[in-house]
Design a protein around this nucleic acid. Structure first.
Lengths: 131, 131, 131, 131
DNA sequence: GTGGTCTAGACCACC
DNA sequence: GTGGTCTAGACCACG
């Protein structure tokens, strides 16, 4: 144990993750152009070098492609995007389940709890129609 | 959007949360003595004042009680501890579901995904050859 | 018995109490802005950290609300303020009665004494020559 | 306004007041010997000079008498002690009423509040017999 | 500017 | 020893 309180994921991974989420969510579609390195750097308030690493990471993940002189684009490989969606989902689920299990919750409790929570949310959102 | 990359919860809340998890997990039991303010400060690598705040927060939550000159102890009110367990569970579930929904996953997908993940974990862990 | 002569309530509670009294008295009204942490610190001759604690206490009591970047304000929940008034009244009365009882005065004596004192005050103030 | 938070009555007046209360309460009776200056100083954890001033103050109030070579005694003038009782009572009542009035409470409210508080205390203490 | 957090170091009361 | 309070001075996020 030590002063691990300020530590967190590197900024470039945080940014890459954010962009992946925007893609999975549908805010950025296959073939969409991403902002230029400089623009993205300004938007996110980080150094252009950091954005460079972000785009490199997205390319490594086969989620984005950069075309010299044109910019960086979301891949047009929709199969890869479907895959990315699955990956992100499983990653978050795994992280969630690990967290809950580590706290001593049983599998049954977790599933029940999640379903109950969603039904409650639905009721709140829809007004709980009887039919 | 801005430079929210370094932001995080205050240390004193992170520490309080960590201790709550240890309690819920069973690593710290009802009536257990917590480390002294000074010891905890050294262990966690923070200032004693910060630990003092953590203990005040735990007392506010009725999760710990402090006896002057003796130290700070996990509450012996086991009903409160059961309640805490439920609170933490719902909190984490809510956060998880919000996150997933925000990413565009449907309720059905999420529940199915969680259950599938767990069954896979079980298989891995137990070998799952009962049938 | 010992050297409890210099002991007193913590400054931050004294200050919080003083502000509550000013509110109950009507000197500070619902929605009024309290002095900034730094200004109040100068006014009261204490450290800004202490005032910070005072405002946190007032917020915990739901007597004040703080808006980031704007300041700390007396709550606009007038029902809560009426409640505060009752609380303060009962608190002072309880303390007074406890003190008197401890000194060996009987209930009857106390009530009679209080009423007599007030009638005398009224006489002094108004001249009380209606009859 | 300034740093008036640590200020309070001088210790010698606090001690004199405490002794008066013990007399009024009946813990010290007419003619009782008070502890020697040195003993009282040790008991109260203060300087003997301070106790000297305390006894002088009690003498000035005609509440105690000191006989050279013998010590200090509660006065045997029971009329004076009855008077002292009245004085203390009125003093406390006056202080209480001033405090409450300053906070904006009306005379009627105060009397009603005090009587209500006492009835409640009686109920709690006696178990609220129906007859 | 605002409040919120953190560190450093001190003193106190209680046991 | 314990926790509780206070000061001094710093940095941060928000608006």
């Amino acid at each position: 144990m030590g002063d691990d309180f300020r530590s967190s994921q590197p900024i470039y991974l945080q940014l890459a993750d954010r962009i992946c989420r925007e893609i999975v969510r549908g805010d950025r579609k296959a073939g969409d152009k991403l902002p230029s390195v400089r623009d993205m750097a300004v938007e996110a308030g980080v150094n252009p070098n950091t954005v460079q690493r972000v785009y490199a990471e997205l390319e490594r993940m086969q989620v984005a492609e950069t075309r010299r002189g044109q910019g960086t684009f979301v891949t047009e490989d929709v199969a890869r995007l479907r895959e990315l969606r699955e990956e992100l989902m499983h990653e978050r689920i795994a992280s969630f389940v690990r967290d809950m299990t580590e706290m001593g919750f049983r599998a049954e409790e977790i599933v029940t709890g999640v379903r109950a929570h969603m039904e409650r949310s639905l009721d709140t959102a829809q007004g709980g129609r009887t039919e």
